[in-house]
């Protein structure tokens, strides 16, 4: 998987990108990636379907919604989403974060007021850094990104902060997730596969595996 987006740099400490304000609360994975696009056998084309129903009027590819932030040229290269509460609630589909990861230059981080558990786990598995911040901070970041699409934000996992233009705010994420990014072990598959001996030992212990 040479240049594929699925496996970016394994160690993630700092992300410096412009912001994408998507402040509405309770955005579901159906909003992020409508179910009708789950009929692909690969994640590779997902970027074009991100937020499709909101980005196109009545689902018509020829009628882009001129007001949607993801259709504005000024935000075409954004890399950090600013979102509201319960971001990514609903269906488990990994297609949703894959759509964000593969949209234009790729979303690398999300700062939200809160996340749905499964969505944030899916993000971690593909290397999107999701952090939460106090509601007033997220509102501020949304405001700044709305006012100035070229503003660069720096998300720093070592200091757990996001900063722009001399302003710095605390963000939060579980310590285990932070360490996973800092050490590159967020990509757990490799870690699991290396524990074959332990997996075998567990199989010998579980009684029901031998029930006939």
């Amino acid at each position: 998987m040479s240049s594929d987006l699925t496996i970016p740099e394994k160690i993630i400490t700092r992300i410096e990108r412009t912001g994408l304000p998507l402040p509405r609360n309770g955005q579901t994975t159906d909003d992020q990636l409508p179910a009708k696009f789950l009929n692909e056998i690969s994640f590779k084309p997902m970027g074009q379907y991100a937020y499709f129903n909101e980005r196109y009027v009545e689902g018509d590819l020829n009628r882009p919604n001129p007001d949607h932030v993801m259709n504005l040229e000024a935000y075409a290269h954004a890399g950090i989403v600013f979102a509201g509460t319960e971001y990514g609630t609903g269906s488990s589909r990994e297609h949703a974060p894959q759509g964000l990861l593969r949209w234009n230059d790729g979303i690398q981080a999300i700062v939200a007021k809160s996340f749905a558990d499964l969505f944030i786990k899916n993000c971690q598995n593909i290397g999107i850094v999701g952090v939460t911040a106090a509601p007033e901070i997220v509102d501020k970041l949304v405001g700044v990104a709305q006012k100035d699409s070229s503003m660069k934000f720096v998300l720093d996992l070592e200091s757990k902060t996001i900063s722009y233009n001399g302003n710095k705010f605390d963000v939060d994420l579980p310590e285990s997730r932070r360490l996973a990014f800092l050490t590159g072990t967020w990509y757990v598959s490799g870690v699991l596969l290396k524990r074959e001996a332990l997996i075998k030992a567990k199989e010998a212990e579980l009684p029901y595996l031998r029930f006939e």
Binding site: P97, N125, V188, E203
Partner: peptide, 17 residues
């Protein structure tokens, strides 16, 4: 429920995180 990446590697390692 898990994401697709987790599901795939779950079948590779009969386990998950």
């Amino acid at each position: 429920g898990v994401g697709t990446t987790e599901a795939g590697f779950g079948m590779g390692a009969d386990s998950t995180s």
